[in-house]
Nucleic acid binder design. Structure first.
Length: 277
DNA sequence: AAACATTCCTGCACGC
DNA sequence: TGCGTGCAGGAATGTT
């Protein structure tokens, strides 16, 4: 579910509400996530102070006291919620509250993940920073390192579809299925175009469209297509701004022809065959 | 009830 | 042949 804009929106909320808080108790109800949680995770979390909340790609990084980091990935259906007064828990099924951290102000930080495709790992800061999960990631799409010449170089000679390339976290980190469709619509490029055949002018439009879509989505608190909720239990607001994702058969906002849906690399992809070449 | 916002692994094809 | 790389397909799972 969560792509870069959702995780970044979450990061901003959590940074405002968690920094300085101390974890006074932790409980692990279910260890079977994508990989089993460490047996001593609850113990390791207890008494830690949260000193910062950062993001890399779709990973959330909680800086803890003792030069440690709690790395969290939400997979398809995960959420990290800060529950206290004003928290809307109407969406959540407590059966999937896998990790619960009680904080020193009486609130709780809860990891909930129905499908359990997510990841949670605590370690020494240096080890997490150089872990296999983070080490191979490509540049952040909103950084200066993601530019047309870079993308063109990574695409050279590649036969895979441009949409697959953009969703390859080693090429650029944080773009997922929803925003890949959206940015390619803005760039006027069909998702199934072979990456090696995309022109320089198109790479320039793709890079610009990536920054625009992700920035706007962050500004709207991310997209809730199905189940994403932020740390307060609230959905994102970018859904109403989606141009093509989930709009199969509906009119393109630009030319009024029907938006089509095709499988590209096993993932549903939406585009306008008139506006995108 | 088919589809799903993600990642990881396997196996095959290809090229040097 | 042997090895590395690219690519497609599938699996993990619960919900709607």
């Amino acid at each position: 579910m969560p792509e870069l804009p959702e995780v970044e929106s979450l990061r901003r909320l959590l940074a405002a509400s968690l920094v300085g808080r101390r974890i006074v108790a932790a409980q692990v109800a279910e260890r079977r996530l994508r990989r089993p949680l460490a047996e001593n995770l609850a113990h390791q979390l207890t008494a830690a102070t949260i000193q910062g909340v950062r993001r890399r790609a779709k990973y959330l990084l909680l800086d803890l006291s003792g030069e440690r980091i709690l790395m969290v990935h939400l997979g398809m259906s995960g959420s990290l919620t800060h529950r206290g007064h004003e928290f809307d828990d109407s969406y959540f099924n407590p059966a999937h509250d896998h990790v619960r951290m009680k904080l020193d102000d009486g609130t709780a930080l809860v990891y909930n993940d129905p499908r359990r495709f997510g990841l949670m790992k605590l370690g020494r800061a240096a080890e997490i920073e150089s872990s296999t999960e983070l080490r191979l990631l490509g540049p952040e799409p909103l950084s200066e390192h993601f530019h047309p010449a870079y993308l063109a170089a990574r695409a050279r000679g590649r036969k895979t579809a441009i949409k697959n390339l953009l969703m390859d976290q080693r090429v650029v980190a944080g773009v997922g299925n929803i925003y890949a469709s959206e940015l390619l619509f803005l760039a006027g490029v069909r998702p199934q175009r072979r990456a090696g055949r995309v022109t320089r002018a198109e790479f320039e439009r793709i890079v610009a469209a990536t920054a625009r879509v992700l920035s706007e989505a962050i500004g709207e608190g991310g997209t809730t297509f199905r189940s994403y909720r932020d740390s307060r239990g609230q959905p994102g607001r970018f859904m109403r701004r989606l141009q093509v994702y989930g709009r199969e058969g509906e009119p393109c906002y630009r030319c009024h022809n029907k938006v089509v849906s095709r499988l590209v690399g096993q993932r549903s992809s939406f585009y306008c065959a008139t506006c995108q070449r």
